[in-house]
Design a protein around this nucleic acid. Structure first.
Lengths: 336, 336
DNA sequence: TTGAAAGCGCTAACAT
DNA sequence: ATGTTAGCGCTTTCAA
C-alpha cells in the first residue's frame, strides 16, 4: 500500500551487510569502514530508503519531538513565541507536536496527557496560569517541561519570562513622568499570575509617589479580547483617567478603538501604554506605546533550555528572565 | 527512569487476563465481558496505565497525527487557518505535527520528508505556491494531502479555497461603483497562483467596463509585509490612483499607514480594500474594507476533508470552494 | 569493523 | 469472550 515500504532490512540485504551496519551508517556511527558506508549509502539512495521514525522511537525511547501546549495559536502573542520555539526546535532537529488548549484548564490536562502518550521528549507549556491540576500532571512525569511566557508562582518549573512587575512599573512610571495623576490599570483576569505581578508593579508606583493616590476605581479587570476592551471604553472615560496601562495588546487596541469612537483624543486626552508590543501595536493608529517583550526570544530561549534539560546538561538558572524595554510610540505624549 | 514504565503487560498480569484483552478494553472493542472490562479498567486506573502511542503506531501503522506545513505560524492569516485545523483535528482525535516552512521551497521539502518519516497519517499543506519539487515529493507517497488556502494550478491535489478571481473582481467592482477610474492592483509576488487569479479578477473588470482603461502602471508587485506596503505608499500616491485593491492584509495596513503618513485622506482621497479580513483589518484605523474569507473554516474544512481521505471515505468534490463576501468598513466610501 | 539477536509496547490475525 | 503468537521497523547490547 504505502509507497514507502522500504525498510532497513531491504537495504541490508541489497548492500549485503547486516541491519546493524545500516543502522550505524544511518545514525552516523563512526565504526563503519568507509567503503561499506559508501556502499550502504548508495543502496539507501537507490532505494530511496527513509528510516521509520516511529519504529526508531519505540526502539530508542526518543521521538525527537517536543510537545507545545498553547492557549490560542491564532493569538499574535503566543504565535510569536511559537515561531521562536519552532526555529530552535528545527535547529536541534526536533519536531513540534502542537496542541491548542483554548486556555481551558481541562483541555490543558487532556492534551498534556495525549502528548505524554505520544512520548514527547519534552514539553513547552504556555498558559495563562498553572492550575493545581496541571501541576499535578506535570509532577507525574520525568520528561522535562519548560514554561514559556508563563509564570509558576512557586518557581518549581523551569521557565522563561521577563520581569513583569518591573516592566509594568516602568511603563506606569513613564505615564507618571508625563504628569498623569489618574492612571488606570486595565487588566485581563487577575487570576493570571502575570497580571498579579503587573498589578504589584503598578502599586509600587504609589509607594514611591506620595502625590498619587491609589484607588480601587482605577483598576479594571475584564476578559482578554478586542471586544471587551472596546466595551470598557465608556467606563474608563467616565472614570476621568488621563492615562491607562493595559496588560494585553488586543485589549489595548480595543480600548483605544472604543475611546476614539467616543471622541477621545489619544494621546492628548488619554495616554495609552500596553504590554506585549506585538505587531498589532504597529498596525493601530496611533501606534501604541508598549513594553517590548522579546517574544520570539521568549520562545527560542525556552526551547533552548528544553534541549539542555532533555540532554541532561547542566543548566545554571532554571527560571530565566529576559530583558525588556519601553518603546514610546504614538499613544503616549512625546515629551521634549 | 520514566515514571511511566507501566506497560500493557503489567496491566494484563495484575488483571489476570491476556494482553489482548487489555488491548481490547483500551480500544473499546465490544467483545469483552462487562465484568472483565471492569476489572481491567480498575487495574488501569490503579496503575495509572497510559498506552504508548508510539508502540501503537508501529503496530497499527497509524499514528493519529497529521502534519501541518505552514509558511509562517506567526502570520495572522495562516494561524487562523491553523486554529480551524487544530479544532477539527481534536474533534476527530488527531494530533498535529507542526512544521514552519518559512515559505522556503527547500525547507518545505525537508519538513515534508521528516513529517513522512514520522508516519503522519495525512498532511495539511499551506503555502504560497506549489513548486515542482514539492509536487514531486507529494507524488512519492500515498498518504492523503490537502491544500488549505493554497492553489494547485493543476487541481490534482485536494484543496479548500475561495474563488479568489471572483472575489477580487467583486472587490474592484465595489471600487468602480464608487466612481473610481484609476484603481491600483497592489500585490504580493505574482508568482503565487492565488495572486494570478486575483489579477485575472482585476482584469475582468476592464473587459466589462469600457470607460476604464487597463494600464501596467497600476499594477504594483512587492513582497509580503507591512514594511513593503509602507514603502510603496509614495509610488502609489504619485501614480494618481483614487483606489487600491490589495492582496494581503499586512501589505494593506502598511500601505495605508504610509499613505496616511503622506497626508492622504482615507477613504476620501484614496479608497482601500484588502483580501483576507484578518483581525488586523479591525485593528487599523480606519478599519479596512475587505473580502471576507472564512479563515477558520478554510482550515476546518481542510481538516475535515483530510479525515475523509484518511478513512478512504467517498468524497464528492476534492477541490472545495467556500463562499466569501465583501465587508465594507472605514477604508472605502459609504455610498448612500 | 561487523553480525546476531533480543527487545521496545502494542495490534491483529488466528485459535479456542 | 479470551488467549496465543507473530510481527511492526528499528536500536542496542553482546560476541566475534
Amino acid at each position: 500500500m504505502d509507497k514507502q515500504a522500504v525498510t532497513i532490512y531491504d537495504v541490508a540485504r541489497q548492500a549485503e551487510v547486516s541491519m546493524a551496519t545500516v543502522s550505524r551508517v544511518v545514525n552516523g556511527n563512526p565504526n563503519v569502514k568507509p567503503s561499506t558506508r559508501k556502499k550502504v549509502l548508495g543502496i539507501i539512495e537507490k532505494l530511496d530508503y527513509r528510516p521509520n521514525a516511529v519504529a526508531r522511537g519505540l526502539a530508542s525511547k526518543k521521538t525527537t519531538t517536543v510537545g507545545v501546549i498553547i492557549p490560542d495559536i491564532s493569538n499574535a502573542f503566543f504565535s510569536s513565541l511559537a515561531l521562536g520555539v519552532d526555529d530552535i526546535a528545527t535547529m536541534y532537529k526536533y519536531n513540534i507536536g502542537l496542541a491548542n488548549s483554548d486556555g481551558n484548564t481541562q483541555k490543558e490536562l487532556t492534551v498534556f496527557n495525549t502528548l505524554l502518550a505520544k512520548q514527547m521528549d519534552g514539553i513547552i507549556f504556555m498558559g495563562r496560569r498553572i492550575t493545581e491540576k496541571i501541576r499535578e500532571g506535570f509532577s507525574r512525569t520525568y520528561i522535562p517541561i519548560v514554561l514559556a511566557g508563563t509564570i509558576d508562582p512557586t518557581g518549581e518549573i523551569p521557565s522563561v519570562n521577563i520581569d513583569y512587575r518591573l516592566a509594568s512599573k516602568d511603563a506606569v512610571s513613564l505615564l507618571v513622568s508625563h504628569g498623569n495623576e489618574k492612571i488606570a490599570f486595565v487588566s485581563s483576569p487577575l487570576i493570571n499570575p502575570i497580571n498579579k505581578q503587573r498589578l504589584k508593579g503598578y502599586e509600587d508606583i504609589f509607594l514611591e509617589n506620595d502625590h498619587l493616590s491609589y484607588s480601587e476605581g482605577l483598576i479594571f479587570e475584564v476578559n482578554y479580547s478586542f471586544e471587551k476592551g472596546k466595551e470598557l471604553a465608556k467606563r474608563v472615560k467616565n472614570a476621568g483617567v488621563t492615562a491607562c496601562y493595559i496588560t494585553d495588546d488586543e485589549l489595548a487596541i480595543g480600548l483605544m478603538d472604543g475611546l476614539l469612537d467616543l471622541g477621545v483624543a489619544i494621546p492628548e486626552e488619554i495616554e495609552i501604554i500596553t504590554s506585549n508590543n506585538s505587531v498589532l501595536t504597529e498596525f493601530a493608529r496611533p501606534r501604541i506605546s508598549s513594553i517590548t517583550q522579546p517574544l520570539y526570544d521568549l520562545g527560542a530561549v525556552s526551547m533552548r533550555l528544553l534541549t539542555k534539560l532533555m540532554n541532561k546538561e547542566e543548566v545554571g538558572e532554571r527560571n530565566v528572565i529576559l530583558p525588556y524595554s519601553i518603546e514610546e510610540k504614538g499613544s503616549t505624549k512625546r515629551i521634549i
